[in-house]
Simulated scan of single mutants.
Amino acid sequence: MSFATLRKTVCTDIDIGTALKEITSNPHIGDALAFDLLDGRHIECVVTDINDNAIRFDSADCLGDGMTYNKVEKWLDRIDHLLPEEVRQAIVDTERKHIIDGKKISRLERLFLPAAPELFSGDDVLGDEGLYMQLEWYKDRRHRMKIDEPGGSSVAYWTSSQRSGNSSAFCYVTSSGYASAHYASYTWLSAPVCFRIRKS
C-alpha cells in the first residue's frame, strides 16, 4: 500500500507514519494526507484548520456512498474502522457543537461532518448562527465542491447542521458548492469525513 503527503506541488510517496509526523510537525492549510482505506478505496484528506493543539483534516471528496441523514453516524463509525491503524491511533476526540430542535448540545466525536457555518457565512448557515466561524479553506467555493469517486462528477453532501425550525430537515452542500437543505429521508446525498489529530 502506498501513502502520500502533498504540499502545494510536491508529492512524495512515503509510509503513513512518516507522513503523519511530517504534517503534524509543520502543518500548513492545504496539506493533504492520501491513503487507502482497508476496503481498498482511496481517500485524500486536506488540512483545513490548525490550532494550538490539533490539526483538522476534511476529506477532499466524498466516498461515493449515498445515505439518508439518520445513517450518517453509522456510516462514519464504519469508515473509522476502515482507516489504517496509524491514522486511527492519531485521531483525537473532538468536541462538536450542534443545535438540535432549538437546543444547543456538545458531544465528543472521532469522525464528524462539517457544520454549515464552517462552510458558509451569513444567511447560508441556515440556522446554526454562532456555532462556528467559516474556515478560510471553505471561503473558496471550489473547496466546498466534492466529487463522489475518482473521475466522477460533483455531488451534493450532508453537513451536521439541522435546518432551523424544521426537525426533519438538514443542511447540505449542492454539487455547485452552495448551501441548501432537504429532508433527512433523502438518500441521494453523500458525506465527507472530518477528523483531528494532535500536533506534535
Score class of each variant (00 low, 15 high):
187 T>V: 05
54 A>K: 12
102 G>F: 08
8 K>I: 05
18 T>C: 08
159 T>R: 00
66 G>P: 11
74 K>S: 15
101 D>M: 07
137 W>M: 03
47 V>G: 03
152 G>L: 08
3 F>S: 07
120 F>K: 00
70 N>T: 06
1 M>E: 15
140 D>K: 05
97 K>Q: 11
1 M>S: 14
136 E>H: 09
89 Q>F: 11
118 E>G: 01
50 I>M: 10
77 D>V: 07
59 S>E: 04
31 D>E: 08
11 C>Q: 14
100 I>C: 05
74 K>I: 02
14 I>W: 06
137 W>P: 01
61 D>P: 04
178 Y>I: 03
182 H>T: 11
106 S>G: 12
84 P>V: 05
194 C>T: 05
101 D>H: 10
90 A>Y: 02
103 K>N: 14
182 H>S: 06
178 Y>W: 08
6 L>V: 14
11 C>E: 13
153 S>L: 09
176 S>I: 07
24 T>K: 13
66 G>D: 10
176 S>V: 08
189 L>M: 15
53 N>W: 07
192 P>I: 12
187 T>F: 12
163 R>L: 13
193 V>F: 05
18 T>K: 14
138 Y>G: 03
192 P>A: 04
175 S>N: 15
187 T>Q: 13
52 D>S: 11
14 I>C: 07
97 K>L: 13
100 I>M: 06
188 W>H: 15
120 F>L: 01
47 V>A: 07
81 H>F: 12
32 A>C: 07
169 A>L: 00
167 S>A: 13
84 P>E: 10
32 A>M: 10
110 R>H: 13
175 S>L: 10
142 R>Q: 14
80 D>W: 15
8 K>F: 05
155 V>W: 02
177 G>R: 08
83 L>M: 15
153 S>H: 09
121 S>T: 11
27 P>R: 01
154 S>G: 03
5 T>C: 10
168 S>W: 02
107 R>S: 09
182 H>E: 08
44 E>C: 12
119 L>C: 04
43 I>V: 15
123 D>S: 14
127 G>T: 00
121 S>D: 07
37 L>G: 04
139 K>E: 14
169 A>V: 00
4 A>G: 08
60 A>R: 09
186 Y>D: 11
34 A>R: 12
55 I>D: 02
96 R>A: 10
177 G>H: 07
84 P>Y: 11
45 C>V: 05
57 F>G: 04
61 D>M: 03
66 G>I: 10
110 R>M: 08
4 A>Q: 12
200 S>F: 11
13 D>S: 15
181 A>Q: 03
129 E>I: 06
165 G>Q: 02
197 I>H: 01
14 I>N: 09
195 F>W: 04
29 I>C: 05
198 R>L: 13
